[in-house]
């Protein structure tokens, strides 16, 4: 039997912390009434001069979603190092971060194996990578300070500024300044899934490598899914229908990119706008419930993105003939 250390659940302490934070939140909201932040769809630029310029595509600015993406990479690397340390400890039962990641990956591998069968080893890395990365990216919106700490920038529809201490200032609600311009916050870090560039890039990667896996599994035969001339002459009417269905497959591949990118972007962007609005309407305690909702939405969207990628890859890898074989076996 393994010895388990039981830490007593400190009820007597934790509930007073919760109460303290609620009361603190109440007074903070009275002192500085929350403002609904300026919502902007494209990512805000942190640098006013472009980082570098590419000949055809254009100029690249340092945006706050790029900062978030680098943070996500850093967190994923740290998780990997923590898991490596936990796994190399030599104990049979992992603990801590390693155990959590093991549970997640085991669940993902089981889903992959039931869907993809013998190709699970080839497809599983895509599923796991996308899920882990999108999960970290989505959960970043739950951290206080993301989306709310940043530079003040002059804007037409801004608010007045009040000095707190030193170089730190906050925007306060004031109707008098409203007409003639004020300041808005340009956050340092904005959740990377609220940038369409990130989600489109992930969707393009996913769909592109779906084709690669299909070609690897079926060879040149894979393209007959799109350009189906096998039955065009032998069976005149149904051949034409098969050919048209093949052309529709091309449209379906393109619509996958749209659907992937808009699903993740729409969910997470709407979630962050929801958090802004709730936080400005009911500043005390109400946001906690919505943070829990966003916790689940972030998890589900990460798993759905990975799972759809996995399903499409499994479908692409099994051709029509092979599918029937498996069905009979």
């Amino acid at each position: 039997m393994e010895e388990t250390k039981k830490k007593g659940w400190r009820w007597g302490v934790n509930r007073w912390f919760v109460l303290l934070f609620i009361v603190l939140g109440y007074f903070a909201a009275r002192a500085y009434p929350p403002i609904q932040p300026h919502v902007q769809l494209p990512a805000e630029r942190l640098s006013h001069t472009p980082l570098f310029t590419l000949p055809v595509i254009g100029e690249f600015y340092l945006t706050n979603t790029l900062v978030a993406l680098l943070l996500v990479d850093l967190i994923v690397i740290l998780i990997a190092l923590a898991v490596r340390r936990g796994a190399s400890r030599g104990t049979l039962v992992l603990s801590g971060m390693a155990a959590a990641v093991e549970a997640l990956l085991e669940a993902i591998y089981n889903i992959t194996e039931t869907t993809a069968g013998k190709r699970a080893r080839q497809i599983f890395p895509w599923f796991a990578t996308i899920t882990l990365m999108v999960l970290v990216a989505n959960w970043m919106e739950l951290i206080p300070g993301v989306d709310s700490i940043g530079w003040l920038e002059h804007s037409e529809h801004g608010y007045a500024v009040k000095e707190l201490f030193g170089n730190v200032a906050t925007i306060v609600k004031s109707e008098a300044e409203h007409g003639e311009g004020g300041f808005v916050v340009v956050p340092f870090v904005r959740v990377v899934s609220t940038d369409l560039n990130f989600t489109v890039a992930l969707a393009l990667l996913s769909v592109f490598f779906t084709q690669i896996i299909g070609i690897k599994a079926l060879g040149g035969h894979y393209f007959s899914k799109f350009w189906n001339t096998k039955t065009l002459f032998s069976k005149p009417i149904f051949g034409v229908i098969d050919f048209a269905v093949g052309l529709l497959e091309i449209i379906s591949e393109i619509s996958k990119i749209l659907s992937f990118s808009f699903r993740l972007f729409g969910n997470i962007f709407a979630g962050s706008v929801l958090l802004f609005v709730i936080g400005s309407l009911v500043p005390v305690f109400a946001q906690s419930a919505f943070l829990l909702l966003e916790f689940f939405v972030g998890l589900i969207q990460a798993i759905v993105f990975g799972m759809l990628t996995m399903t499409f890859m499994a479908q692409a890898a099994q051709g029509h003939g092979e599918h029937h074989e498996e069905a009979h076996a």
Partner: peptide
């Protein structure tokens, strides 16, 4: 079920993206 929900939800998300735009 989750896959089906994701497909059905995608349509609502298109509407949401259009509204946000």
């Amino acid at each position: 079920m989750i896959l089906g929900i994701a497909f059905a939800e995608a349509v609502a998300i298109y509407c949401l993206v259009v509204a946000l735009l």
